[in-house]
Design a protein around this nucleic acid. Structure first.
Length: 510
DNA sequence: GTAGGGTTAG
């Protein structure tokens, strides 16, 4: 059962932040559709091929003069125009990386008529296009364009710093905003808190939340989810469980992300059964687990050494209309292989391939080896192993020397002597050096079947390589050669053994 | 324009 312990986690509880009155969402008056003229205008900045002679002056701090210019609490800033931003992003992405920075020079040329909204759209476009540095560069010049940053501008700047992993700077901008009565948007707060949590700076994240709470922000479910992940990340899984219990009592409704976050935490510390209980609970609440939720369980059970439970998870997943993805299969397959469940692994492998997923070369090697190792205990697996092995060759995949050797040894045990011999030959031709055990196995297997002539080249090869087959192999060979009346052969083998410092118990027949 | 998941080497 999942325990509930009241603890320090109470600081995360929603009740702490119930100051809803001051915070307002974007006003309904926000024009979501922008003037098409403006749209064309900003786009043209990116289109004109004017070369850049512009050098930047990276101002790291937001000039406080600029901030002071901002009209405090006067309405809420306009949200970036999604359509416009998307279009800009496409244009930015269409440019080669080198030319992207030239956009800034073009902005210079039209800066007189640029509005803050257009400026924000451009900033946002840089962020979405994964060019936070360019956004920061552009922002450094804002005052020279005669523009005054609004809360949208600064929210975007926080995102840039988060993207760059410069969380101290992000914090500083946030502090400045709060100090100046500017409201960052929820997305920004979430991104910032998430960035902090991902770095394990949980205290800092809680501090941010506390400050935001003071100015009337109530944490959203997304923010809770980030914090839960943060708690799990730093190993405070028990607290994450407690927070989940508290969330359930509060006004913020947990969603599937919430459950997945805690489940993931539990799975990572070997408490997969409890994670499974949470899945049941989520289902009872009417939440729909998604592929990530299930994948969490695959990871958990695999780590715990119970990969077969994963087969059940896979089944449940399909029953619940959730399509397993590549990660689902890969995690499950690796778990099964790690814990030597080759029979189940080959089934999962076949299913995967049937769907059209590619299986990596290294995994294929592991699978073949796993099948080989298990084949002495379970019937039918040698055939599976051999088929897969041949398939790898057909597909041009590189077979690991250790896989080759194990396959050859297994073929010997399974009395597939010819296949063993052929593969040994092939292996040597490929430049691999099979070990003594492999050589001996093949020699012995061939001798036992009276195929001494085919065994001799192996001995010759071993001698050339300076390897010493065991006296057992020499004895077998001499015995077989005697049997076949091949005196010369028997003498040669005997001589080779003596040369290697070994005295075989069987002597060539006179 | 807010939060997500995976393994491994005989």
């Amino acid at each position: 059962m999942i325990s509930s312990k009241a603890s320090s986690t109470l600081t995360l509880m929603p009740s702490t932040f119930c100051v809803p009155s001051t915070f307002t969402h974007y006003p309904s008056s926000s024009p979501l559709v922008r003037n098409p003229v403006c749209f064309k205008f900003t786009s043209s900045i990116i289109n004109d091929g004017i070369p850049s002679s512009y050098t930047t002056n990276p101002t790291r701090r937001i000039p406080s003069i600029v901030l002071n210019l901002v009209k405090r609490n006067q309405g809420v800033d306009k949200r970036p125009n999604r359509l416009q931003v998307t279009n800009l992003v496409d244009r930015i992405k269409a440019l080669p990386t080198k030319e992207r920075s030239e956009i800034i020079a073009k902005v210079e040329q039209v800066s007189n008529s640029l509005t803050i909204c257009e400026f924000n759209d451009l900033l946002m476009a840089f962020v979405v296009a994964e060019e936070p540095d360019l956004a920061l560069k552009l922002f450094a010049n804002i005052s020279s364009y005669g523009l005054v940053p609004d809360s949208q501008t600064l929210s975007i700047i926080i995102r840039c710093y988060c993207k760059n992993n410069n969380l101290d700077e992000a914090q500083r901008v946030l502090d400045d905003m709060v100090e100046n009565g500017l409201n960052p948007n929820f997305a920004t707060i979430t991104i910032f808190i998430n960035s902090l949590c991902k770095k394990g700076r949980l205290q800092r994240a809680l501090k941010v939340l506390e400050v935001m709470g003071r100015i009337g922000y109530k944490p959203t479910v997304q923010i809770y989810n980030c914090l839960l992940k943060g708690l799990c990340y730093v190993g405070r899984v028990e607290e994450a469980v407690d927070v989940l219990l508290e969330i359930k009592k509060g006004e913020v409704k947990p969603d599937i992300y919430t459950y997945t976050a805690v489940m993931d935490g539990l799975c990572k510390v070997g408490r997969s059964d409890e994670a499974m209980e949470l899945l049941v609970e989520a289902l009872e609440l009417g939440l729909k687990p998604d592929v990530v939720t299930f994948n969490t369980l695959f990871t958990g059970y695999s780590r715990e050494g119970r990969p077969l439970e994963g087969i059940g998870v896979l089944k449940q997943m399909k029953e619940r209309d959730c399509r397993p993805d590549y990660i689902s299969y890969k995690t499950l397959l690796h778990g099964l292989l790690k814990w030597e469940k080759a029979r189940a692994a080959v089934r999962v492998y076949n299913e995967m391939v049937g769907i059209g997923f590619k299986v990596e070369e290294s995994t294929m090697n592991t699978l073949v080896r796993g099948l080989c190792r298990t084949s002495c205990r379970k019937k039918g697996l040698l055939k599976d192993a051999h088929q897969l092995f041949e398939k790898m060759k057909c597909e041009g995949l590189v077979i690991d020397p250790s896989t080759y050797e194990l396959m050859i040894q297994t073929l010997c045990i399974g009395k597939k002597t010819d296949e063993a011999r052929i593969n040994l030959k092939e292996m040597i031709e490929m430049g691999y050096s099979p070990g003594k055990v492999t050589l001996n196995n093949v020699i012995q297997a061939l001798c036992e079947e009276g195929k001494v002539i085919e065994a001799l080249p192996i001995l010759v090869h071993a001698n050339e390589e300076g390897r010493v087959p065991s006296s057992f192999s020499y004895n077998l060979l001499i015995g077989e050669l005697n049997e076949q009346g091949n005196k010369l052969g028997a003498c040669n083998v005997y001589g080779a053994a003596l040369k290697r410092g070994m005295i075989p118990s069987r002597k060539p027949r006179q």
